[in-house]
Computed example of a mutant assay.
Amino acid sequence: MDLSQKVKFPDTVFAQEVDGEMVLLDMNTENYFGLDEVGTSIWQAIEENEGELQKVFRALLDQYDVEEDVLKKDLSVFVDKLAESGLVTVLRNEC
Rank of each mutant, 00 (worst) to 15 (best):
T12P: 00
L53V: 06
S41E: 14
K55Y: 06
E30H: 08
V77Y: 10
V13C: 05
L35Q: 01
L60W: 05
M27I: 06
D65N: 15
T29Y: 10
I46D: 01
L87G: 07
D19K: 13
V7Y: 11
G86H: 09
D62P: 01
L53M: 15
D80V: 08
V79T: 08
D11W: 03
A15H: 09
T89A: 12
F78N: 01
M22D: 02
V79G: 08
D80I: 10
D69C: 01
L71R: 04
Y64Q: 10
N49W: 00
M1E: 07
K8C: 01
Q54R: 12
K81C: 08
D69A: 08
E84I: 04
D80W: 01
S41Y: 07
G86W: 03
F57V: 04
L60R: 06
P10E: 12
G51H: 09
K6A: 05
E48V: 02
S85G: 02
I42K: 00
S4I: 03
E84N: 11
Y32Q: 13
E84Y: 00
A15F: 08
L91A: 08
E84D: 15
E47G: 04
Q54E: 12
V18H: 10
Q16G: 03
W43K: 06
K81F: 08
L75T: 00
D2R: 07
V66H: 05
K6T: 12
E67I: 09
E17T: 12
V13M: 08
L91T: 06
L75K: 00
E67G: 07
